[in-house]
């Protein structure tokens, strides 16, 4: 009878009371679910970038000067950071897209999907490791008012 172990936070139960998370708990999916969430977010982000990008490219038909002015803003440091995010999003979307194709068409895809997810992340880090240093140097040069070489 005396075997009851009082948990250190026995009074904590009082504090937890109430709808701390009114909408229920977040479903705790694993790699598959999070890769899907990332794929959605990057996909929507890339869509909106392409929308803007098609519009700004179409400007060249209206006025080359206006086109140059708009494209020139891409050189600003803030846009440089945006470009870095864009490359990151496209890289992840592309690599995970290959993973999804393998899941659907490769016989062993569903079995190895979790491993493939981590391979995607490793390849993505390698990709960004090759790109980001150069991009940040360019941003820094632009920030100091020097046109990049």
């Amino acid at each position: 009878m005396s075997s009851q172990v009082v948990r250190p936070g026995a009074e904590a139960a009082e504090r937890i009371r109430g709808p701390r998370r009114p909408a229920g708990t977040l479903y705790r999916g694993r790699e598959g679910m999070w890769s899907w969430v990332l794929h959605r977010i990057t996909g929507v982000a890339i869509f909106f970038f392409l929308l803007v990008h098609i519009l700004d490219t179409a400007l060249v038909r209206i006025s080359p000067d206006a086109y140059n002015a708009v494209i020139g803003t891409y050189k600003q440091p803030i846009m440089g950071l945006g470009e870095a995010a864009l490359v990151g999003a496209i890289g992840l979307h592309a690599l995970n897209g290959l993973r999804i194709i393998l899941i659907d068409f490769w016989k062993l895809g569903p079995r190895w999907q979790r491993v493939m997810y981590w391979i995607v992340l490793v390849l993505w880090v390698i990709l960004l490791a090759g790109f980001l240093p150069r991009q940040f140097v360019n941003i820094a040069l632009e920030f100091q008012g020097m046109p990049n070489a």
Partner: peptide
């Protein structure tokens, strides 16, 4: 292909 179904299946069926 979020694989939530495969993780959740109490019978270990490879649902996805």
């Amino acid at each position: 292909t979020t694989f939530n179904c495969t993780e959740a299946c109490p019978r270990g069926i490879q649902v996805t």
